[in-house]
Computed example of a mutant assay.
Amino acid sequence: MASADEPVRARSRRGADRYRWSARGFVAPGVFLVAVLLYLPLLWTTFLSLTDYNGLRDPEWTGIDNYTEMFSDPQFVGSMLNTLLWVAGTLIVPVGIGLGVALLTWNLKGGTWLRLPFLIPYALSGIGVGVIWSFILGSNGALDQALAAFGIADTPRWLLDSPLNTIVMIGATAWQGVGVNALLFTIGLQSIPKEPLEAARLDGATGFRLFRSILWPMLRPLTAVVVGLSIVASLKTFDIVQGMTKGGPGQSSETLALTMYKKTFVNSDYGLGSAIAVFLTVVTLIASILYLRQQLSSKHEG
């Protein structure tokens, strides 16, 4: 004999099914948009990376020839090394200085106004930052003229010698990015409960000991976000390099993103440019996944 609860269960299942289909209906436009704007271009780029294509005639299938050419090209190897230098530099300089600015100003009266000058450059575009620093660091530019006024005539060729040109461009990026990193770290510091800080101070923890024992462990979740964003952004560095050196002299300061751009849109070698794009995408995904897994495993162990 059928249970009296069966109609209730049936209605409950029908309600749950309607809820699931309604939820899928709300999600479907977003999924479609992501597929059209992200996944389909990625699949098309992957296909082009396996062809010989100049943007005019039909793509001609060549297999992995573009990847073989890419890894055997000294220019590509130099771009990859420059990109790694960008990753290291942007982790050390803008993130490190941003943390220092946040620590020095977060507990000060008027600290917001002290952080504001660091935050203003973030409103500029990368090309704009490149133009400003090209004026400062170019041959006989503002910096050279300022040094000459102090009797220093033999100045370095800031944008002409490698790897000095990459190093000063990392400095320009730091000038733009320190403010937003300081803002993010300040938000993290302000969210720390006062009780552990007061207890640590009563135990005599001040200065570096307070930072190491209390502040840094509590900032770790936010630090993971800041460092992850910095890694991804540095792997895709393009605009500042294009604005300051255009990858020169020669190709001495090119990054992978700039090499991809030149191969594709300057040399009209869409197949090789697509191969570099796929390689850069894979490297970015692997770096992001490995970093997030390491952070999550550290969190669970803690």
Rank of each mutant, 00 (worst) to 15 (best):
L85K: 09
L33W: 11
V168K: 06
S125L: 08
A4P: 13
F118P: 02
V283Q: 07
Q75P: 02
A287M: 15
H300L: 11
H300K: 05
L229D: 02
W113R: 06
A172Y: 12
T68Q: 15
N165Y: 03
L219S: 02
T255V: 01
M70N: 01
Y291W: 09
G111W: 06
L258R: 04
R201D: 01
G78L: 10
L258Y: 13
S234D: 10
R57G: 13
T45A: 15
G89Q: 05
W106V: 05
A2V: 15
R24D: 12
S230P: 03
G89D: 05
L42Q: 15
G98K: 02
V282L: 09
E198G: 04
W44D: 15
P59F: 01
L229C: 04
V95W: 06
L50A: 07
R13L: 05
M260V: 12
R209E: 07
T237V: 13
L38D: 08
W158K: 00
V36W: 04
A4S: 10
A172M: 14
D5Y: 14
T223F: 10
S191Y: 00
G302T: 08
V101E: 00
W61L: 12
I92T: 11
R201F: 05
G243W: 00
G55N: 12
V225I: 03
G151R: 00
D58P: 03
I276W: 05
T112P: 00
Q176D: 07
G177Y: 10
G302M: 10
G100A: 09
A146H: 11
W175P: 03
G130P: 00
A35F: 09
G138L: 10
S252V: 10
V129F: 07
N165Q: 13
A142M: 15
G110I: 04
N66F: 06
R20S: 14
T259E: 04
G78A: 13
Y19C: 10
I132F: 05
K194G: 01
